[in-house]
């Protein structure tokens, strides 16, 4: 009797410590966890999430022929729910035939220029963001899974260098705020850990859907650093490093943020 009780007690202790170890294993926080309940509900409810309007538009664009080839995304890729599932968890990545990594919007523009023979869509263009949101939405709930290889690793290392280097008139690095002081308050607002789990995001401050690049530029302006030109490889390098930091975290696209 005593032995059985003891065994039961031990099993309880093991179960409890296992649960604690699991909970403690990953302390990373998505920005989702640091925003208010009202915003969390807005993101979770597809009929209230403003980003879903762009996902719907992206779905229409997916099926719409474009360019000199008069081909739609669907003509080659079929049903996005199948063909695009998990794709956004791996980007930025090096597409077949390319010599350097591109992010998802860069990949969409490659498809436009090479396969559809259509013009590139400019940065933050509504159709581009909508297509990106539609593609990334097919990976919602899936863990971020960055690619590896000598070239992509080199870009990622460059991205980490940028992340850790002080810059701008205020002489701050990404790491100073988002590693060393994440969770503390900057002007009353919680500093997030900078995990890119939900891009493109609908940011209330923007009243619009926007890309990770746009968000990075906001921070650069904030520390009074010179923003790179919109097509600069530095953004892709930084995005690669940020996705590595967020490896295994679940994609939320389209996320809502304050």
């Amino acid at each position: 009797m005593t032995a059985r009780l003891l065994a039961f007690g031990l099993a309880l202790v093991f179960a409890a410590s296992y649960a604690a170890a699991q909970a403690g294993a990953d302390k990373r926080r998505s920005g989702y966890q640091d925003m208010g309940e009202a915003l969390q509900k807005m993101q979770d409810d597809d009929t209230a999430n403003p980003g879903m309007l762009f996902v719907q538009l992206g779905g229409q664009l997916w099926a719409k022929p474009a360019g000199a080839e008069n081909k739609s995304c669907a003509d080659c890729h079929g049903v996005a729910a199948d063909s695009m599932k998990g794709v956004a968890t791996r980007y930025p990545a090096i597409p077949q035939g390319a010599d350097r990594p591109v992010d998802l919007e860069g990949r969409i523009n490659m498809c436009r220029t090479e396969n559809q023979k259509a013009e590139r869509l400019p940065p933050e263009n509504r159709d581009l963001l909508s297509l990106e949101a539609y593609v990334a939405h097919q990976s919602r709930g899936m863990p971020i899974a960055p690619p590896y290889g000598p070239v992509v690793d080199a870009f990622r290392a460059q991205g980490e260098g940028i992340y850790r280097r002080r810059q701008g008139q205020l002489n701050l690095s990404c790491a100073i705020c988002h590693d060393d002081n994440a969770g503390k308050k900057l002007a009353g607002i919680v500093i997030p850990e900078a995990h890119p789990t939900g891009y493109p995001i609908y940011r209330l401050e923007w009243q619009a859907l926007g890309s990770l690049k746009r968000r990075l530029r906001n921070c650069l302006v904030g520390i009074r650093a010179e923003a790179w030109s919109l097509d600069a490889p530095e953004y892709v390098a930084l995005e690669l490093y940020l996705m590595e930091r967020a490896k295994g975290m679940k994609l939320e696209t389209p996320a809502v943020r304050p």
Partner: peptide, 24 residues
């Protein structure tokens, strides 16, 4: 220190053009 130097222009990287060469 993470506190910016409010009256120094040297030793800074990639300062935005509008602020380059100026103290805070």
């Amino acid at each position: 220190t993470i506190m910016p130097a409010y009256y120094r222009t040297g030793g800074l990287q990639r300062v935005a053009r509008a602020f380059d060469g100026k103290t805070i």
